[in-house]
């Protein structure tokens, strides 16, 4: 069974009298463990789609089934609980909490799921920070980190609770190409090691090389859905 299924998903934003259709009927299935890129120009509807998959927004019509549950039927509280336990977010602007250190930003996410004792939490946080290449920087505050490092913290934060799905909305848009590559490699590596399902959006053609599945989105519709052979990413 697919981890995620979208059926005829539409989203219309209303700006006063004008209706802006952001998604115009999206059908999609994503299986567990997939590493998918959503590619398309600015304004094509990538963010809108990711936010609806991530339970942050609701479609105007159509259904989304995530992990066997139909999201339409759930309350705000239930949706928050799905995000808390099953979804990790990575945003373009990192969105770390400035008063918390790298370690604490990651710790925050794992504390929320109330699953591990203090010792285990510590081990897991340190391990994931090391895995994203931030060993020795645990005690730095966000303002003491570079853009790439901040995004690594955000990746660690999204992954530490071992969610079913990680949604990354243009995670490399604020990074230079070298750093972008590094961050993408980290995501690919985590996908391989942990089997976490990733969906990330981008409008940068270079970034697409890292995906095994590529969805091209244009004017709120999926224009192309391609799969490729396993790609090998060297460290």
């Amino acid at each position: 069974m697919a981890l995620l299924e979208l059926k005829g998903v539409r989203k219309i934003y209303r700006q006063g009298q004008i209706e802006v259709p952001a998604l115009r009927g999206v059908d999609l299935q994503v299986d567990e463990g997939e590493f998918t890129t959503v590619f398309g120009p600015s304004g094509s509807g990538k963010t809108t789609m990711l936010n609806m998959i991530g339970c942050l927004d609701k479609p105007s019509s159509g259904t989304i089934i995530f992990n066997g549950k139909e999201l339409n039927e759930l309350s705000k509280k239930d949706l928050a609980m799905i995000r808390r336990f099953n979804i990790g977010f990575i945003f373009q602007s990192y969105n770390l909490i400035p008063v918390l250190t790298a370690y604490e930003n990651v710790e925050f996410a794992i504390r929320l799921i109330n699953k591990y004792d203090n010792k285990e939490i510590r081990e897991r946080v340190l391990k994931i920070l090391a895995a994203v290449g931030l060993e020795g920087m645990e005690n730095r505050r966000p303002h003491e980190l570079s853009g790439g490092q901040k995004q690594r913290v955000a990746i660690a934060r999204a992954l530490v609770k071992e969610p079913k799905l990680v949604l990354a909305d243009e995670p490399t848009a604020n990074l230079d190409s070298k750093t972008s590559e590094e961050v993408l490699k980290v995501m690919v590596k985590m996908n391989k090691e942990l089997g976490t399902t990733f969906i990330f959006s981008t409008h940068d053609p270079l970034v697409m090389d890292y995906a095994r599945r590529m969805l091209e989105i244009r004017d709120g519709l999926i224009a192309e859905d391609r799969r490729r052979e396993e790609i090998n990413v060297s460290d």
Binding site: L56, A80, M81, I82, F91, N95, I97, P98, R157
Partner: peptide, 13 residues
């Protein structure tokens, strides 16, 4: 605001 938004995305009530 951004932090609060992030906290909500993380599933805080």
């Amino acid at each position: 605001l951004e932090e609060i938004g992030m906290m909500k995305a993380m599933g805080l009530q």
